[in-house]
Amino acid sequence: MSSRTTPKVAVLMGGPSREREVSLSSGRECVTALRETGYEVIEVDAGPDLAARLSEISPDVAFNALHGRWGEDGCVQGLLEWLQIPYTHSGVLASALAMDKARAKAAYQSVGLPVVESVIASTAEVQARHVMAPPYVVKPNNEGSSVGIYLVSEDANAPPKLSENMPDTVMVEAFAAGREMTVTVMGDRALAVTDILTDGW
């Protein structure tokens, strides 16, 4: 931390992921809240020059408002560690594990938490045949915020036709009916529980 009376905060937003627009929106909200609280805030649209920008800005802390790959998967966290800039949210390992759904599920299973059946398969195979009995869900293994989700119903006659933007390999997971909840955890303290609502499912 520098000797500045008012800490300088670099809010990282945007970036190259498929969740860029969501990140820009939430990043601007963070900027507004931080400025109202009295911090000196610099908005940083994260691009290939991010390391150079941060070195030039020399913030006291980086507020990570990036979403999806590169922002939540350990990549930007590793960059911030290298630059020795303190940052918000989880560290490198936790971020990388959480974004990789298969490895996250393996971690849950290792401590006895129940998870639904799933397999990793190529997009070509998923589009050629049912790789498990419907109903099931097809999703990228390493994206966030329900990006690229396909729900295959129990009475589906054919496998799903996936977007060209889908990665070469995906997770196919048995469908589990119920509500989707997300819980923020800070240290060892659970914060607010949010109910995730999606139209059309």
Rank of each mutant, 00 (worst) to 15 (best):
E29M: 15
E29C: 12
E29V: 14
E29Q: 14
C30N: 13
C30E: 04
C30Y: 05
C30S: 15
C30M: 15
V31E: 15
V31D: 11
T32C: 01
T32Y: 02
A33C: 09
A33P: 03
A33R: 12
L34Y: 08
R35Y: 08
R35D: 07
E36W: 02
E36V: 04
E36K: 15
T37S: 11
T37Q: 13
G38N: 05
G38F: 09
G38M: 10
G38D: 09
Y39D: 06
Y39H: 11
E40N: 11
E40C: 12
V41M: 05
V41I: 03
V41Y: 07
I42R: 02
I42C: 06
E43I: 14
A46S: 12
A46R: 03
A46N: 00
G47E: 09
G47R: 13
P48H: 11
P48Q: 07
P48G: 13
D49A: 15
L50Y: 08
A51T: 05
A51C: 01
A51N: 03
A52N: 09
R53G: 00
R53L: 11
R53M: 09
S55E: 15
E56I: 08
E56D: 11
I57M: 05
S58R: 15
S58F: 01
S58W: 01
P59W: 11
P59Y: 12
D60F: 11
D60Y: 10
D60W: 10
D60P: 09
V61Q: 02
V61K: 05
V61Y: 03
V61A: 13
V61H: 09
A62S: 07
A65L: 01
L66E: 10
H67L: 01
H67I: 07
G68F: 12
R69G: 10
R69Q: 15
W70H: 08
G71F: 12
E72R: 13
D73M: 09
G74E: 04
C75V: 15
C75F: 13
C75R: 04
V76K: 01
V76T: 14
V76G: 00
V76F: 08
V76S: 05
V76N: 03
Q77Y: 02
Q77G: 00
G78I: 02
G78H: 04
L79H: 05
L79M: 11
L79S: 04
L80D: 14
E81F: 05
E81W: 06
W82R: 10
W82M: 12
W82P: 00
I85A: 06
I85H: 00
I85K: 01
I85E: 06
P86K: 05
Y87L: 00
Y87G: 04
Y87M: 03
Y87H: 14
T88A: 02
H89S: 05
H89A: 14
G91I: 06
V92N: 01
